[in-house]
Every structure is written in C-alpha cells, then in structure tokens.
C-alpha cells in the first residue's frame, strides 16, 4: 500500500468508513458496556465490522478505540488494560484490511473538562493520550485520527501526544462544530479559524470536522477550512440527527442523499470523505461511488 501522505500530496481523494457505535450495538454491545471492551472479548466481531467497511470501499478503517484513552477506560475499570484494548483494535482492523486499507487509530475526547472549567489536569490527559497512542502505533496503526473534539486545548494535547510518541505517523485532527448566528463554533467556543491555527501549530497533517448535524452543513464547514489551510481536509458527517420512528431511532440521511452532498465536499477540495454516527457500509459504498466516478 502506498504511503498515505504521498497519496494525499498527489491529490488522491480517500474514502473513510462509517459509524462503529451503531454497528457494535447491532452486534450485541449493551448500553453501559465499554464498546472498547469488545476488542478483547469479541475481536471477531470487530474484524467483521472492519471487513464490511473494507468491502464497501473504505480506504481508511477506524479502530474501535474512540474511548480508548485511560481517562475514558477508567469509567469502566478498564484503564489497566489500555495497551491491550488499543492493540487488539488495531490488530483486528489490520486482519480485515489485509493491506487494502489504512488502520486509522481513533482517539476521542477524554470525557472530562480540563481546568479551569472542570477537574481534569491537562498533564494527566496528555500523558493518557501518549499511553494510548503508543499502544496504537506499536500495534501498526497507519495514522492517528483525533476526532470529535470540541476543546481545542484537548485536541492539541492529543495531536502533540501523537507527534511525540509516534512521530512517523500522519495525524488527522477533526473537531465538531455547531451552526451559530456568527458562524461555526464548537460548544467550547472554538471557531474554524482557531481550530486551523491551533491544530496546524500542534503538527496535525490533516484537518477537518466530523460528527455534527448532517452532511449539508459540512459543505459550508469544508469551504471555511479550505479558505484557511493548504493542508488536506477530512470531513466525516453524521447521517443527520436521529429521528424517532415507530419506537426506534433512525438517522435520516440516506446513502444517496449523502453521496449527493459529497459532490459539494469534493468541489470544496476535501481529501478524505467518510461518515460518522448513523452511517453504514451502504453510505460508504455510495461515497466510494462518487469519489471513484470523479477520479475516472
């Protein structure tokens, strides 16, 4: 497999995968369980989900390590197994990918607000990220994916941690923005401009946004990123916000709808297009179709 950075530098557009949480639930994770515990107890299921996304045409497969930082695992009494949980996740993706896709090592928020807004000590959070990312890198991750961040200080800690313990791996860093009257901001008040500056200075190789309220808004967010940075941009939207239907919850954006929006993302110069909450292998297949059609 070609080096990721070489492909991005050549202007290649890559397809990310879709949601993991909903897939895990469909495979029997119960609410209240750490989704990451399945990396140890049901590695076969993890490999199977990864395979579904590889077959759907994803170039990057996210590892099931969003909550794999010790701060997050501690809530389930699993922090002692940080290394094993993260290692097993990368190995499952690598087995499924067999050289056809990159293992994108997910690193999510710690779940704690840092001082002075909360109790968490930034030094602890940073050390936790280093521990998680070291395990991910040693297991053979191809890139680090810092995602769903709303606090720039925390995102910067994760990017710096990656650059310090895994300097050879590219780092993708994406934040989650809301639409306000004054533009796009995270709930912590970070603008796209501040995100671009802070994440670039921390050494991120790929910038962008994930999660949020749907693919339509993401086109506008992508344009704002494009105007502010020359780095490759990654966009991984939710399939909208879930709506109750017949006693269950359904994400409204269909694969076809998202593929339509993907045209706008491609026109805005996005280099990595994938999905977040509510997206499925069918969404990824639709994105793959658009991206491949554009290339040919």
């Amino acid at each position: 497999m070609k080096d990721l950075r070489t492909r991005l530098a050549a202007g290649d557009v890559l397809v990310g995968d879709g949601a993991w949480g909903t897939m895990l639930m469909a495979h029997g994770v119960r609410p209240g369980e750490a989704p990451e515990s399945l990396n140890l107890t049901q590695a076969g299921v993890i490999e199977e989900i990864a395979s579904l996304y590889v077959e759907a045409g994803a170039d990057l497969i996210t590892t099931n390590t969003f909550g794999g930082s010790p701060a997050r695992l501690r809530q389930f009494g699993l922090d002692g197994q940080t290394e094993a949980v993260n290692r097993a996740a990368v190995e499952a993706v690598r087995r499924a990918a067999r050289g056809r896709a990159y293992a994108s090592a997910s690193v999510g928020p710690s779940g704690h607000l840092m001082k002075p807004y909360g109790d968490a000590d930034p030094a602890d959070i940073g050390a936790g990220y280093e521990r998680q990312i070291r395990a991910l890198a040693e297991a053979g991750a191809d890139l680090v994916c810092v995602e769903t961040m709303t606090d720039l200080a925390e995102a910067v800690l994760a990017v710096r941690a990656a650059k310090s313990v895994a300097p050879d791996l590219p780092v993708m860093a994406t934040m989650t923005f809301e639409t306000t009257r004054r533009g796009f901001f995270t709930v912590m008040g970070v603008s796209v401009e501040q995100a671009v500056r802070g994440l670039s200075e921390a050494g991120a190789d790929i910038l962008g946004s994930n999660c949020g309220n749907g693919s339509g808004t993401m086109v506008a967010i992508a344009r704002e990123f494009r105007a502010l940075t020359g780095l490759p941009i990654a966009i991984q939207p939710n399939a909208g916000l879930p709506e109750p239907r017949d006693g269950s919850l359904v994400y409204p954006e269909t694969p076809e709808f998202m593929a339509e929006q993907a045209r706008g993302l491609l026109a805005a110069g996005v280099a990595i297009i994938g999905g977040c909450c509510g997206t499925t292998p069918a969404h990824v297949r639709a994105l793959r179709g658009i991206v491949s059609a554009m290339r040919s």
């Binding site: 607000l113 002075p116 807004y117 306000t180 009257r181 004054r182 901001f185 995270t186 008040g189």
Partner: peptide, 12 residues
C-alpha cells in the same frame, strides 16, 4: 442558547 457565549463562559 444564542451561542453569544460558550460552555467555558457558562461554567465560570
């Protein structure tokens, strides 16, 4: 609510 301020301001 109008996002004239953000979570950190509310917490302080």
């Amino acid at each position: 609510r109008e996002r004239e301020i953000f979570l950190p301001d509310v917490l302080l």
